[in-house]
Design a protein around this nucleic acid. Structure first.
Lengths: 329, 329
DNA sequence: CTGAAAGCGCTAACAT
DNA sequence: ATGTTAGCGCTTTCAG
């Protein structure tokens, strides 16, 4: 591994000049610059990131904290964030929270010592701001860049990049109602999830718009995974609840609901229409194909990169969603 | 951020002693150790990873290079690898290869300067060993730990942790044949994928065992994604090919095949049985539920961690697979 | 058992 | 425009 000193010697300049050429800061004569550059190439020099980090006070990796990388929403996000960060010379340190608040705190606690340039928090779990808030502020005070993805924390001073939630759900449910698919049930996580509540509110708003009262028996509060969707829907079906559509809080849930409906011999969408939320990969390939609400991880990643690149960016960015009409509704 | 010097001062010892206590290397008197430890707690000291890395010559993060994090196989693997590495004090730097050989080379090239402790290569794409081989050896020469996941590179001197491929496929196809589901088609990537060929060979072996000749029209060489499976199967169906089962090289492909079959009004598994490969998350929730071949990311991660922990581990570990019988076959 | 001191590779004042 | 130099925080000989 060649060092700046090797480059400096070969180019016949001092290490300071090498550093200046490489960083682009400070004035360097054309002749010297040329020689440095060719020495860099000749030695295949790559600056040692740890030394740079030690000197600068922070490294060149951003910590991405995701709720659960195994869920497609997060893996798709991760992919785009990694690409976007790579574009501005930043690496990605991945931390899987596994939806654990304790783990989140531990990681936040260790972030400065880790040499992270910043932290991107991507979880929709409701955060205990009493403990997380101070930690986040502490990080910012240490000079770390902090960004929230999917959850609005801009009031807490954390720039946030989120998707539209309530209005998107509202439009989807309105579509169901207009298509004569009522009564419409809601399947999703109401508490514990920062976005779950918003989505439910969109459902409630759409019913309100249509002058329909909310039927508590048609609102199922569950976790986000497949099994939860399957069970809740099965229970409702077996209990003889009357509904002709289900708006789900996630695609996983929607798939679970579809399985429950199909297992009981009902047809989708004729007997029961289903709309998911999140447009994960396989939704279009299931039969019937899942009608769902879009996500735009690339747009999110682009905005997140803006923040880490130090580019001007709004404290709150809201990415729009659209209804993806496919076979299930 | 407290430094070793702060701790040393508070404990009334030298920084060397603090370092010795923290690393557990070297002898330290009981009294001194106690004082250091309580000083560490009092100051909430956490060693600066970049300084440690600079001094030691390498950092404490492992680079995980995955083919495509958005594919469930890789995200599940990543999750477990991150957990396992965390257990031995290592962080995870994620690099998404996007199946690009060029990107792989770039990352491998930069790895030492990045301060990585090691690199875990998780891709089943066929590697151009002429260029990748030397790079890998170069990394090892620089003291980086290198492990291959999913692809056998132990002959190249890279310890590998892989799943059973050929024999697992062979058993699955044999099961199809024994259940009277023949003729059996094979849908998967034959070239370009290091495991695709192996899986196909398992298929071929099972046919051979049953004394059946391979019908080239029933072997579809495609990429790994949904769409490819859908199209290949549609084409075969529309061309009037005769087969009553499809062994697929991946679950994504299987889902595509199922959609094609269902779209043409055929029943699964009665008209055509389908077996996937890989047991990704949603397979059990589709209808009919996908019969597939298991994966064990936790087992893989555990072995990978063994390598990075410097624990004794075999040059080649093969994780067994089992047939997961569900509804589609 | 413990301390002093050198130095990992780099950057940023500070000189010139 | 360019060089000199002082560390960033830590580990590790080398002395004692």
């Amino acid at each position: 591994m060649a060092t700046v000193l090797d480059v400096a010697r070969l180019a016949g300049v001092s290490t300071a000049t090498v550093s200046r050429v490489l960083s682009g800061k400070g004035n360097v004569g054309e002749a010297a610059r040329e020689r440095v550059l060719s020495a860099v190439r000749a030695l295949d020099f790559q600056p040692n990131r740890m030394a740079q980090g030690l000197r600068r006070g922070h490294g060149s990796a951003v910590g991405l904290l995701v709720g659960d990388i195994e869920q497609n929403v997060y893996s798709a996000l991760t992919k785009h964030v990694q690409t976007a960060l790579g574009g501005i010379g930043l690496d990605l340190m991945l931390y899987n929270l596994d939806h654990s608040a304790e783990r989140l705190s531990t990681i936040l606690e260790a972030a400065p010592a880790m040499g992270l340039r910043g932290v991107a928090l991507a979880t929709t779990d409701v955060l205990a701001m009493a403990t997380v808030g101070p930690q986040l502020r502490q990080l910012q005070a240490s000079g770390l860049l902090v960004v929230s993805i999917g959850q609005r924390l801009h009031r807490e001073g954390v720039p946030s990049v989120v998707h539209e939630e309530r209005s998107a759900a509202r439009r989807a449910v309105a579509y169901l109602l207009e298509s004569g698919r009522g009564p419409v049930a809601y399947l999703g996580r109401l508490s514990g999830s920062a976005v779950g509540t918003e989505r439910y509110r969109g459902y409630a708003a759409a019913l309100g718009d249509a002058g329909i009262a909310i039927d508590r028996d048609l609102v199922w509060d569950v976790s986000y995974r497949f099994a939860a969707g399957y069970e809740a829907t099965s229970r409702a079906l077996d209990a003889g609840r009357r509904f002709h559509a289900v708006q789900c809080g996630s695609d996983e849930l929607a798939l679970g609901a579809m399985a429950a409906i199909q297992d009981r011999g009902f047809a989708i969408p004729d007997d029961v229409a289903v709309i998911g939320f999140g447009a994960i990969g396989w939704g279009g390939h299931v039969r019937p194909a899942l009608t769902t609400i879009s996500v735009d991880p690339a747009a999110v990643a682009a905005r997140v990169a803006d923040h880490f690149a130090g580019r001007e960016a709004p404290a709150l960015t809201i990415i729009p969603r659209t209804l993806l009409r496919r076979g299930s509704a």
